[in-house]
């Protein structure tokens, strides 16, 4: 018999939380791709950086994680993500692009960058443990979520992550469409040689977009840390599905990636509840469902959701 309460708790709430996490993380990866054309394997690590910054900030300030405190740390997560993303662009990708590196070479470089960030986080981990006795391993931010009487932590997170996602999308929409910088940024993405000829410093525009990429992804890291254990693998383990969201979204539109994130989130949760569970399949198969969707997308609508939206506009 259909139970509304179970459906809400086992399906709707987790699906919203998962979807928001993948949507938030896909925004930065889509921007990485449309600005500098890098399918970055270090993207997930920006989320881990945000989560680690949150963790250290809260431990430094309160010696632990108190209810609601992650929102105090959110600007710190954004700053840390932004700083690491900016340094990645300025220190690694920009010099390589200037030397004419191909997409493949940039992709391999991003792989190297992943191991670098990963390694630094692991080292920080052991320093924090031996020196301060802070146990960063397998921590969860769920205790740092705000508490609302009568609502479970998951329910609250479904609400807060939706609000944060909407605020970020609104801010990006405003930035891109209502400000001069946004126009210049879209111009640089649309036609970089012409932008240069018109005196636009395209590399500077890209550097600023990497700040935005890092900030948004750092915030995504906090929400990842609410449902997945915070380790240096926090972002890396999510990366395949972030790629799925971005590819299903069409690689060319931030909003397409967000819809892609929702498709990933819902398909995972629905698949788990209605396919894997009834068939007694282990949860590891959960990943198979989003990947089946991405293969179907590539076969049926190679341009993804953004392509479908553009095709509709043309008619």
């Amino acid at each position: 018999m259909f139970n509304m309460y179970d459906f809400l708790n086992n399906v709707v709430i987790p699906a919203i939380v998962y979807s928001n996490i993948y949507a938030l993380a896909s925004i930065g990866l889509t921007m990485t791709y449309i600005t500098t054309k890098i399918p970055s394997f270090a993207h997930g690590d920006l989320a881990a950086v945000g989560a680690y910054a949150t963790f250290y900030f809260l431990y430094f300030l309160f010696g632990g994680i108190k209810p609601g405190s992650v929102y105090l740390a959110m600007p710190i997560a954004a700053l840390a993500g932004a700083a690491v993303a900016y340094l990645s662009y300025i220190g690694v990708f920009k010099p390589m692009i200037r030397r004419g590196a191909s997409v493949t070479v940039l992709m391999i470089a991003s792989f190297g960058l992943h191991f670098l960030i990963f390694g630094i986080l692991a080292i920080l981990d052991s320093i924090a443990q031996t020196v301060y006795g802070w146990s960063t391993r397998n921590y969860s931010f769920s205790t740092g979520e705000v508490q609302i009487p009568g609502l479970t932590q998951s329910e609250v997170t479904a609400i807060t992550s939706s609000v944060v996602l909407l605020l970020i999308l609104a801010a990006l929409y405003y930035l891109l469409n209502r400000t001069k910088f946004g126009v210049v940024m879209r111009a640089s993405i649309d036609n970089a040689p012409l932008a240069r000829a018109l005196g636009i410093d395209v590399e500077r525009v890209y550097a600023i977009s990497w700040l935005i990429i890092g900030a948004v992804t750092g915030i995504a890291g906090i929400y990842m840390g609410m449902i997945f254990p915070v380790t240096e693998e926090l972002g890396w383990l999510r990366l395949p599905l972030i790629f799925v969201a971005v590819i299903v979204g069409g690689l060319s539109s931030i909003y397409g990636g967000v819809i892609g994130g929702y498709i990933v989130g819902w398909s995972m949760v629905l698949g788990f509840n209605y396919i894997l569970n009834p068939l007694n399949l282990p949860p590891e198969y959960q990943l198979a469902i989003p990947f089946a969707i991405v293969i179907a997308t590539l076969l049926l609508a190679p341009q993804g959701i953004a392509g479908l939206i553009a095709a509709r506009r043309r008619t």
């Binding site: 649309d190 036609n191 040689p193 932008a195």
Partner: peptide, 13 residues
């Protein structure tokens, strides 16, 4: 198109 293969306007703007 110019020597870099792009048009002299921003088509998407």
């Amino acid at each position: 198109p110019n020597n870099f293969g792009t048009p002299n306007i921003f088509p998407e703007l």
